[in-house]
């Protein structure tokens, strides 16, 4: 009994640093955000300690400047929220579609070359995100590499307008987050027993059926992990839409930045941050539920 108690105390002591760090670094700031979202904005930023629901209401409704008390739907905020959702879902989808064959390709290489391919996949991480994003800018801008090449080849007569559009943001995010999809799927395929492929073919399954009925259900945890790793930073992206969206095609991350900066509306910023968190949590819950149900159906 006494030994059991000692052990419990020792376990608490051992995990104390991690618990303290988690509380201070994760739960603490989150709590501050929750509190700020229910306060009133200060004149030059910061907050006034007066309870208000204005921050939360401003997410969806704007008060008329000339008629206080009259509220209209905040179209700008909705557009930005929808764009964030759309672009991050598209990014997740395209990285999964591109990442799965890539991961399969790497996982089926002999161990020696596999290390090399994995190494190549991680090379983009060596460079700062900002620099990589400017590099994409350099490729897709009107006088950039892509347009110069297409013009030179005679395939187009006018430069394609990609930069400062949703497409540009989408390309940037897909490029930057692709490794986050490839690596977990690779880990899942690496554990996959390739002999099951022969069993599938032996039992009259076509190539497509083997993919759908044998491979995908078994490596699904890897795809789910990859999707979470891509979707979560995508919907909160800040640098990429800032540079490739050219300040017009904002995403939630930029909107939040705006509220804490020029907008001087910290409660709204905090409320937007909490909204983002809730969206991510709902998306993950729905996603896991749907994929699990598919699995049960077999």
């Amino acid at each position: 009994m006494a030994i059991g108690k000692d052990r419990t105390r020792r376990n608490w002591l051992l995990s104390a640093p991690a618990l303290i760090l988690l509380t201070l670094a994760a739960a603490g700031p989150l709590l501050i955000m929750v509190v700020y979202s229910f306060l009133s904005p200060g004149q030059y930023g910061n907050v006034q300690w007066i309870f208000s629901l204005e921050g939360w209401r401003s997410i969806l409704f704007t008060e008329d400047i000339f008629e206080p008390g009259k509220y209209t739907l905040a179209d700008a905020h909705l557009t930005i929220l929808m764009r964030s959702l759309k672009l991050s879902l598209l990014t997740t989808l395209i990285t999964a579609l591109v990442g799965f064959p890539t991961a399969w390709f790497i996982a089926t290489k002999p161990p020696k070359t596999r290390v090399l391919w994995l190494f190549l996949i991680t090379i983009p991480f060596w460079t700062n995100l900002l620099i990589r994003t400017f590099a994409i800018n350099e490729v897709i801008r009107n006088e950039g590499l892509l347009n110069s090449f297409l013009l030179w080849a005679g395939l187009i007569t006018e430069p394609l307008r990609i930069i400062y559009t949703d497409t540009a943001v989408f390309i940037g995010m897909a490029y930057v987050y692709l490794p986050f999809m490839v690596l977990p799927i690779f880990a899942a395929i690496d554990r996959f027993d390739m002999r099951l492929l022969e069993a599938g073919f032996d039992l009259y399954a076509s190539r497509l059926q083997v993919l759908r009925r044998v491979i995908l259900p078994i490596v699904k945890p890897g795809i789910i992990a990859g999707s979470i790793l891509v979707f979560t930073p995508s919907i909160g992206a800040y640098v990429i839409p800032r540079i490739l969206g050219g300040g017009k095609n904002l995403m939630v991350g930029n909107l939040i930045d705006l509220q804490f900066g020029q907008g001087r509306n910290w409660p709204l910023g905090a409320a937007l941050g909490m909204t983002l968190l809730v969206i991510v949590m709902i998306a993950l819950a729905v996603y896991t539920r749907v994929t699990n149900r598919e699995n049960d159906r077999g």
Partner: peptide, 17 residues
């Protein structure tokens, strides 16, 4: 293999987990 009326019992069984 999927067009042959032949089935295999594998050494490792290769059952679908």
């Amino acid at each position: 293999p999927n067009k042959r009326a032949v089935n295999t019992v594998f050494q490792s069984y290769a059952l679908f987990p």
